[in-house]
Design a protein around this nucleic acid. Structure first.
Length: 202
DNA sequence: CGGATTTGACCGGCGC
DNA sequence: GCGCCGGTCAAATCCG
């Protein structure tokens, strides 16, 4: 599984303004995930984030979905059955997890990777993430971090890793599609929508 | 005190 | 079959 670092390709022709990052890239990627923090105006002008070279090959790298291991949103069988020991639960959880993963067709989850030039490893994409693991990876001096969306019905994951070749570049890989609106985006849009609704009454 | 993070253990896939 | 590696779990720890 040589998920090695993605090659840095020259930035595509600037289809989009450099200061204002693209809002709508592809429907399958959370639009806000390529957004700087909506609540930090200075971030909009943050020169540290290279929004132009953000995307590889006209926007994004579509990773070949070679991952057979899929966990669906609601069936992740964690330990927790009453009447079993922790170890049994843990074992069972693993087994169930693997069994389901194996029995499922290679349900392809969309995976998208993009690179950002940033000092910060974590892009504030508007969603809330909980870190569930960190792993040293081969051929990289930086560890890879694993995050899961904290929304209870959402199973989107992302991996974040800094390139060892160019330490200013952070590769973020999203896996899956959010099944809920972006909280920050909604916060921002709600007043606008209300205003539009109000104006449309005339 | 509750939620988030850290971290070592564990597991399956894959190449040899 | 074995070892390496990436991905995940969950107990321990941290932190607001």
């Amino acid at each position: 599984m040589e998920d090695q670092e993605l090659p840095i390709t020259p930035p595509p022709p600037p289809l989009l303004p450099t200061q204002n990052p693209p809002f709508f890239f592809l429907p399958s990627i959370p639009s806000s995930s390529l957004h700087p923090p909506l609540d930090s105006p200075q971030a909009l002008m943050n020169p540290e984030i290279d929004w132009v070279s953000l995307l590889i090959s006209s926007g994004q790298v579509r990773l070949t979905d070679k991952k057979p291991m899929i966990e669906s949103a609601n069936n992740s069988t964690m330990a927790g059955n009453i009447g079993t020991t922790v170890n049994e639960d843990r074992e069972k959880g693993y087994k169930d997890h693997k069994r389901k993963a194996g029995s499922m067709k290679k349900a392809t989850r969309p995976r998208f990777a993009f690179q950002t030039r940033s000092k910060d490893d974590i892009l504030d994409d508007g969603y809330r993430w909980r870190k569930y693991g960190q792993k040293a990876v081969k051929n990289s001096i930086y560890p890879r971090s694993y995050y899961r969306c904290t929304h209870h019905t959402c199973s989107v994951k992302k991996q974040v890793q800094r390139l060892s070749k160019d330490t200013s570049i952070v590769v973020t890989t999203y896996e899956g599609i959010h099944n809920h609106p972006c909280e920050k985006l909604m916060e921002t849009l709600t007043p606008l929508l209300k205003q539009m609704h109000f104006l449309s009454a005339f």
